[in-house]
């Protein structure tokens, strides 16, 4: 059994969105319930939210953007950069707590107190660009974690696996010229789904050429296609790259019962993905893996999906 951390805090529900918005606070209690009902809590190390040192966020985002976000939130704006990004007076604070909590989870893994961790945070991060909020995301959590690991812990090669059903445009753009971070994303084909990037021919730029890999999946293809594409595009790439730490953008919105996509991945399909990522972590990164929640909007399915995910982190 692994020593697995679980980042969870009621304060992540403070960030509120308007009507008819899927990224609701209730997503997190759904995640918690699945894990608690399965009796897993006693086997996990609970990690609480905390505020981060701003210098880590500034490794990824423009200072100007951070100030703009804080100001917009402080003024009582309900929308930031696009109507997709709805917010309330404490959205900025919640976003900071998400980053801080994740960095704490990373620290414990890097210090060897934990083998791996799952971070159930809001708001999500992978659409956030250096200077722009997008697709419900404000700070690019996973990108900040990657930079923090490199700077604070002297790690050279980070591998990111993003299985949210939407392409992580922000993460890709942040690292597309950087050969030290390999970004892999599998998602619904951009001609059918937000945000319209992540095509096969986007494979990094300049020095980073070959260190970005995208597997777009046509609607309805589900488990079989995911298995084929990950075997073809991800496994050989990581075998060559040999990431020293693996970060996961864990979105559960490709599920067949999730209204946000048409991919039709099964619950078992998600377990298969987690198992394969764990295998790679064992093989290349001494088990070091930090998984961070992105999307996943089916309140009915989130309990089982989060439970299976963290159970695989614990037991594989």
């Amino acid at each position: 059994m692994n020593r697995t951390g679980f980042l969870y805090d009621d304060r992540y529900q403070m960030h509120r969105v308007g009507n008819y918005h899927p990224e609701v606070p209730d997503r997190l209690p759904a995640v918690y319930k699945g894990i608690a009902d399965a009796g897993l809590l006693s086997r996990l190390t609970l990690i609480k939210a905390q505020l981060p040192d701003m210098k880590w966020i500034e490794l990824v985002h423009d200072k100007n953007y951070i100030q703009r976000f804080e100001a917009a939130c402080g003024c009582g704006n309900t929308i930031f950069d696009s109507p997709d990004n709805q917010m309330c007076s404490v959205t900025y604070e919640t976003a900071l707590l998400a980053v801080g909590g994740i960095l704490e989870a990373v620290r414990r893994v890097m210090e060897g107190q934990l083998d791996n961790a799952f971070c159930a945070i809001r708001p999500p991060g992978h659409h956030a660009e250096v200077d722009k909020a997008m697709g419900f995301c404000y700070f690019n959590n996973i990108a900040i974690a990657a930079r923090y690991i490199q700077k604070e812990w002297g790690i050279e090669r980070i591998g990111i696996v993003d299985f949210d059903v939407h392409h992580g445009n922000g993460t890709q753009h942040i690292f597309e010229e950087d050969p030290s971070v390999f970004y892999y994303s599998i998602h619904e084909h951009p001609s059918f789904a937000y945000p319209g990037t992540g095509r096969e021919f986007e494979h990094g730029k300049n020095l980073g050429h070959g260190f970005t890999k995208n597997s777009p999946v046509l609607p309805g293809r589900g488990d079989i296609e995911y298995k084929l594409l990950m075997a073809k595009d991800l496994f050989p790439a990581f075998d060559q790259f040999k990431p020293e730490v693996i970060l996961v953008s864990a979105g559960f919105d490709a599920h067949i019962d999730d209204e946000m996509s048409n991919i039709k991945l099964s619950t078992e399909g998600f377990s298969w993905i987690a198992e394969k990522i764990m295998e790679m972590a064992k093989k290349y990164s001494k088990g070091r893996l930090i998984s961070v929640l992105e999307g996943g909007y089916s309140l009915r399915r989130l309990p089982e999906l989060a439970r299976n995910h963290i159970q695989i982190l614990l037991e594989r």
Binding site: Y20, H21, P22, D84, G135, H166, F192, L218, P219, G220
Partner: peptide, 26 residues
């Protein structure tokens, strides 16, 4: 220009329009 189309899809269906599953058209 949005990620959030769940509600508008339901609204269009309520108005009596048939939404084609992307799977169907490809």
């Amino acid at each position: 220009l949005t990620q959030n189309v769940v509600h508008i899809k339901k609204k269009l269906e309520k108005l009596g329009y048939e939404l084609l599953d992307p799977m169907q058209w490809y």
